[in-house]
C-alpha cells in the first residue's frame, strides 16, 4: 500500500450550469486499496468516477491518474491511461450491437489497435474472454446479445469487460443498484474476488452499506473459491477499505467503517445499517 497514489484528487471542482457536482474534492487511493463512496442521488458520486478517467473535465483543481496529471489532457492523450482502468457503468454500458463475447473481447482488441500490432491471436483472445466470463460465471452467454440478459447478468458481463485486460484500477458505478439482495451480494462477491485475486485498486459508488461491509469484512479464498470473513483486527487486509460520504458535491466524511459507525453526523448516519 506504499508508494505513489494510483489516483489522487486535489481540490477538484466541477459545475453543471449552476449546480456543483464536485466541490473542492480531495482524496487519494493507493495500490490494493478500496474506497466505498456513499451519497444521496445527485451528490456527485458518478461525476467523481467519470472525472477520475477524464470523461468530464474539471472547472478547478487537479486529478492525477497513475501519477500523471490528467486535468488538462486532450481526449486522445487520455486513452493510454484509460486502457489501464476498468469502468463498470451503472447499467453495464454494454454495446447492444455486439454479443456478450464481443463486448468482453472489445478492450483486448482495442488495446492492440493503435499500432496494428497484434500480440495475441484469435484463439488466445477467445480463451481469455471465456476465462473472464467463467470468472463472473456467465460463460454460457458468450454468443448471446446483451438484450437477452437480466439486469444482474448485464452487470456481471460489465464487470467481465472491465477486468478482462486486468487493469490495476477499477471503477464501479453503483454495481448493485436496483438488484435483489441475492444478486447484489453475488456482484459484490465478484468485486471482492477481483480485488483479492489480482490485488487491484477499487473505487466503488454505492447506496448499500452492505456493499461496503462485504469489501471490508471479507476476503476471497482461492482454495475454497468463496468469500471468507476477515478474522482479527490485525489482518493487513483489514484497513485497506475506507469509506467516503458525499453531499452536494463535497466529501463530508472519509475514514474507516468503525469511524463511520461512530460518526455523529446525521447525514453520514443515513448510510449506516442500523441494527433492528
Amino acid at each position: 500500500m506504499d508508494g505513489q497514489p494510483i489516483l489522487e484528487f486535489k481540490n477538484a471542482s466541477l459545475r453543471y450550469d449552476q449546480t456543483w457536482a464536485l466541490r473542492d474534492v480531495s482524496f487519494s487511493i493507493r495500490q490494493g486499496e478500496t474506497r466505498v463512496i456513499f451519497g444521496e442521488a445527485g451528490s456527485g458520486k458518478t461525476t467523481l468516477l467519470k472525472a477520475a478517467v477524464g470523461l468530464v473535465h474539471l472547472d478547478g483543481g487537479t486529478i492525477s491518474l497513475f501519477g500523471e496529471d490528467i486535468t488538462a489532457r486532450k481526449e486522445s492523450d487520455l486513452f493510454p491511461l484509460r486502457g489501464r482502468t476498468g469502468f463498470l457503468f451503472q447499467e453495464g454500458g454494454l454495446f447492444d450491437s455486439l454479443t456478450v463475447g464481443e463486448n468482453v473481447e472489445y478492450p483486448i482488441l482495442n488495446s492492440q489497435a493503435p499500432d496494428g500490432h497484434k500480440q495475441t491471436n484469435g484463439e488466445q483472445i477467445e480463451a481469455k474472454v471465456r476465462e473472464t466470463l467463467r470468472f463472473v460465471e456467465l460463460e454460457q452467454t458468450y454468443n448471446q446479445p446483451p438484450s437477452a440478459l437480466s439486469g444482474g447478468m448485464r452487470r456481471r458481463v460489465g464487470i467481465a469487460r472491465a477486468i478482462v485486460t486486468e487493469p490495476p484500477l477499477l471503477l464501479y458505478d453503483s454495481p448493485t443498484a436496483g438488484l435483489d439482495p441475492i444478486t447484489a451480494n453475488t456482484i459484490m462477491a465478484l468485486v471482492a474476488k477481483e480485488r483479492d485475486v489480482r490485488n487491484s485498486t477499487s473505487l466503488i459508488v454505492t447506496y448499500r452499506y452492505q456493499d461496503g461491509e462485504i469489501m471490508d469484512d471479507f476476503r476471497y479464498d482461492p482454495e475454497q473459491e468463496l468469500l471468507v470473513p476477515l478474522i482479527g483486527e490485525q489482518s493487513p487486509k483489514r484497513n485497506r477499505t475506507k469509506f467516503i460520504v458525499m453531499k452536494d458535491g463535497k466529501i463530508v466524511f472519509e475514514g474507516t467503517r468503525h469511524q463511520m459507525n461512530d460518526s455523529k453526523d446525521d447525514y453520514v448516519r443515513n448510510f449506516i445499517r442500523h441494527e433492528e
Binding site: 457503468f89 447499467e91 454500458g93 454495446f95 447492444d96 482495442n110
Partner: peptide, 17 residues
C-alpha cells in the same frame, strides 16, 4: 440510444474515440 444508456461514455472509457 447509445448516449442515454452510457454506451458512448463506455466507449470513451474503453479508450475509443
Amino acid at each position: 440510444s447509445m448516449k442515454v444508456t452510457e454506451q458512448i461514455d463506455a466507449m470513451r472509457a474503453l479508450a475509443t474515440d
